[in-house]
Structure formats: structure tokens, C-alpha cells
Nucleic acid binder design. Structure first.
Length: 447
DNA sequence: TGAAATGTTGGGGCG
DNA sequence: ACGCCCCAACATTTC
């Protein structure tokens, strides 16, 4: 009697370079593929609206590709621990495989499950698949983790090179009868009443095949000009790979090995390095989304929230053209150019003096690429409270940024073409107020 | 992965 | 010819 191999898909919705899937195939028994929509386990962050849209379509793609192999993707909803244990029992699985996660609550779930299943005599194996280096392997000379990017990335580059990506399995042996599955449509991941996803549908094609096509196109067409053009929000020279990495439709090993030989790829690869740095930072500071990494920022004098200002920022109605353009790109497409992300974040935190956590939550809800590491990491970077952060006194001037990086006004006219209205705040005055607030933090005792 | 304020320099207009 | 001033251009400092 066969004892199937259970593959638990999480943030790795791909068949290529999937070590868990590979190990299950190599075990030689029928494969049961599972995805669990977990909104119940302690501390797990509920997905935002744009993320749910992406997840739906990426799961639909994975489901179809597995079906081509004769394998059913079993969809279940609930706390991962009991759901997985039920599935293991129902399918009589003898082995479970997954690729590692690095967030605090996820690690707790996975560790508990691994111990419990092993207790029951089930083989459980986890793999490195979504980071180039395991977080505990990148340490300073004194054994601590890095808090500054440049030495961190230098240390990564000095480590043995990331392994070569694994090919997609040619054959995946399916089980004769798979456990019952929810219907993806019943999960209600797509927006209705209203359906606000039209812009997302125009902008994106989720799923592994489209991700591979984009990688190829980026390498051929955009990488050569990446260093020169990546800061121009109208230019389209960025990789657009962030959601594909977020959902694991591409692995960083694949991206690394495809790009590393290309002349002038260093700047792009170091962006992969920032992604790596954010995840390592989360691994060492699981409360990254809620707690200032630099605790002296706990004394930051946030004024009482003016909800109208937060709303104006969210809706792209601040009267500051580059900020409004960015926020509307976000709302319409689930994405925003990186340069503009820095500008709108600086504006929220420093010109409006609104807590970075509120900006982080809005991005979490509206970005298709937000993950629990990069999103809070980057907000803390802008706010000045984070790892290797921009000094708080570094206040972006959105008008100057527009002049420098969107000199023709192409990006602004694409997203905010109406005649500009009066800014809701004076850029010069609010800049001064932000610097005064910074003074309080500067005088605060260091944690 | 800033911007503004302040400081320095040097060419050119002009008395 | 010379000194003076203005000011753009660039550099440095400060926030």
C-alpha cells in the first residue's frame, strides 16, 4: 500500500526550482499537493485585498499546471496545524515536504507541525527555497547579524555561491484519489461589489509561466539599461519581478543564476540583496511590522492623527503631483515604482507626520507584492527607524524628485493628469516640523 | 537610495 | 590696469 508524499505549497507557487516538490517526486510515491489558506493560526497576518487577488490567480495557474501532470491541488482553509494533520491522516501520507518560511508566526506553526508529525512517525523535511542564504548563515565576525546593508551584502557575496536552480520535474506521480478540496472560487479571494481589480487584470498575469516570460524579457530588454533607467518611474526599466518573488512563482536562485553572468547586473543583483536583507532582518526581529527597530524612535512625537490627511494620501488627493500619481498607480495596478514608493512614504511620514505603520498597512492592503518582511522593512527604512535607514533628516522634496526623475512629466500625466490643486500641506513648513520632531528622537536615550 | 543653507571660487562687467 | 562687486557654479556643512 502506497504511502503518498504530501507537498505543502506556501509562498512557493511554482514547479521549477521547488526542492520540496523535487524531494517528493524522488521519493517515488504518489504526490498529494496541498495549499492551505490559513487565516487562523496565531499571529499570521491576514492577506490584503490585492494579495488575495494575486493569490487566487496564481493558485489557479498552479492548479492547472499540476492537473496537466495528473495531480490535484488540494485546497483547504483553516489553521494549518490541524488541517495538515487531518490531510496526512486522510491520505495516509508517509512523508511531508515543504519549503521554509522565515516569519515568526509561520516558523512557530511549522516547527510545531514538524514535531507533531514526526511524533506520529511521519517523515518531515523542509528546504531552503525562497532565500539565497539561510538567515542564520550570514553573520558578522562577532557572530551577530548585520544591521547595515553594504557589509551584509558583501558577506553574502563572499559565501559559497547560491546553488543552481532545480529543473521542473518531468513527471509528477499523482495519487489515484486525492483528498477532498475546496473550490478556489468559493474562497472569495476576488473582489466583488465593487470589482476594483480591472486595473490589476490589465497590469498583471500571475502564475509561473508568465513569471518566467517576464524574467526572460527583463534580462534581454531591460537589464542592460537597469542602472541608468531604473529610477525613472515612466521608463519601465524595472524588473517587475517583486510579486513573482513574493508568491514564489520564481525562486531567487533562478533569478540569480539567470542574471549573474550578465554584464552590469550588479545593481540589479543588489536589489535582490535588499530583499534578502529584509527577510534576514525579519528573521531576527519578528515584530518588524509593529515595533521600531531602533527603539529610540518609540519616543517619536507623532501628533494626533488627522484622518482626512491619511485619506487624502491613500486616495492620491494630496495636491502634490508625484505623490498623487504614485498613490493612484498603486490603487489601479497594485504596484508602485520603487522611486515613487520612497517619495510617497517620505511624504506620509515626514510631511504629514503620520506613523509609518499606517502607511505600511495601506501598502499591505493594496500592493500585490507586499510581504511581511520587505513591506515593513522598507517603511522603517524610510521612517528612519529601521535597519541601515535613511537618516530621519533626509526628507524628500516631491517637486524636486519629479524634476529629477520624471522631467517630462510622463509618469505624472499618466496617473494624475488633471490640473494640480493646492497641496494639502506646505512642503517647506512641514519639512521643518519633521526636523523638529526628529530632534526629540535624537535626544531620546538609545535603547 | 536628499535638500537646503552656507561657503568658496573665479570670470566678467564696470568705474 | 586695477580693484571692486556680482553671481553662477561648485563644494561643504547642516539638518
Amino acid at each position: 500500500m502506497a504511502s503518498p508524499s504530501l507537498v505543502w505549497f506556501r509562498d512557493d507557487l511554482r514547479l521549477a526550482d521547488n526542492p520540496a516538490l523535487r524531494a517528493a517526486v524522488e521519493r517515488g510515491e504518489p504526490v498529494v499537493a496541498v495549499f492551505v489558506l490559513d487565516e487562523e493560526s496565531h499571529g499570521i497576518r491576514t492577506l490584503g485585498g490585492a494579495a488575495r487577488w494575486w493569490l487566487h490567480h496564481s493558485l489557479a495557474s498552479l492548479e492547472a499546471r499540476l492537473r496537466d501532470h495528473g495531480v490535484t491541488l488540494v485546497l483547504r482553509r483553516g489553521a494549518a496545524d490541524p488541517v495538515l494533520r487531518d490531510l496526512v491522516a486522510d491520505s495516509n501520507a508517509g512523508a511531508v515536504f515543504w519549503n521554509r518560511r522565515y516569519g515568526g508566526p509561520e516558523r512557530a506553526v511549522d516547527a510545531g507541525l514538524k514535531a507533531a508529525l514526526r511524533e506520529d512517525g511521519v517523515e518531515v523535511t523542509s528546504f531552503a527555497a525562497s532565500l539565497l542564504h539561510e538567515p542564520w548563515t550570514v553573520t558578522t565576525g562577532t557572530g551577530t547579524h548585520y544591521s547595515v546593508f553594504t557589509p551584509f551584502w558583501r558577506a553574502c557575496l563572499a559565501l559559497p555561491a547560491p546553488r543552481a536552480p532545480l529543473p521542473e520535474p518531468r513527471v509528477i506521480p499523482g495519487a489515484k484519489s486525492a483528498p477532498a478540496s475546496d473550490s478556489l472560487d468559493d474562497w472569495g479571494l476576488l473582489p466583488t461589489r465593487p470589482d476594483w481589480a480591472a486595473g490589476l487584470r490589465d497590469a498583471w498575469a500571475p502564475g509561473e509561466p508568465a513569471a518566467r516570460r517576464r524574467l526572460k524579457e527583463f534580462l534581454e530588454h531591460d537589464l542592460p539599461s537597469y542602472d541608468r533607467a531604473r529610477d525613472e518611474p515612466a521608463g519601465g526599466a524595472t524588473s517587475l519581478l517583486s510579486p513573482r518573488l513574493r508568491w514564489g512563482e520564481l525562486s531567487p536562485f533562478t533569478v540569480w543564476h539567470e542574471a549573474v553572468g550578465v554584464d552590469g547586473a550588479g545593481g540589479f543583483l543588489s536589489e535582490l540583496g535588499w530583499r534578502e536583507f529584509a527577510w534576514h532582518t525579519l528573521f531576527h526581529s519578528p515584530e518588524l511590522a509593529t515595533k521600531n527597530l531602533r527603539r529610540e524612535f518609540d519616543s517619536f512625537p507623532w501628533p494626533p492623527l488627522d484622518p482626512a490627511q491619511l485619506e487624502a494620501w491613500q486616495h492620491g488627493e494630496t495636491g502634490v503631483p508625484l505623490v498623487d500619481a504614485g498613490m493612484r498607480e498603486l490603487w489601479n495596478t497594485g504596484y508602485m515604482h520603487n522611486r515613487v514608493r520612497m517619495v510617497v512614504a517620505s511624504f506620509l511620514v515626514k510631511n504629514l507626520l503620520i506613523d509609518w505603520r499606517l502607511g505600511e498597512e495601506w501598502f499591505w492592503d493594496t500592493l500585490v507584492d507586499a510581504d511581511e518582511a520587505n513591506n515593513p522593512f522598507n517603511w522603517q527604512w524610510v521612517a528612519g527607524s529601521g535597519a541601515d535607514a535613511a537618516p530621519y533628516f533626509r526628507v524628500f522634496n516631491p517637486e524636486l524628485q519629479a524634476k529629477k526623475f520624471d522631467p517630462q512629466g510622463l509618469y505624472i500625466s499618466r496617473w494624475a493628469s488633471e490640473a494640480p490643486s493646492e497641496p494639502i500641506v506646505d512642503l517647506g513648513e512641514t519639512r521643518k516640523a519633521a526636523l523638529a520632531a526628529y530632534d526629540v528622537v535624537k535626544r531620546a536615550p538609545r535603547a
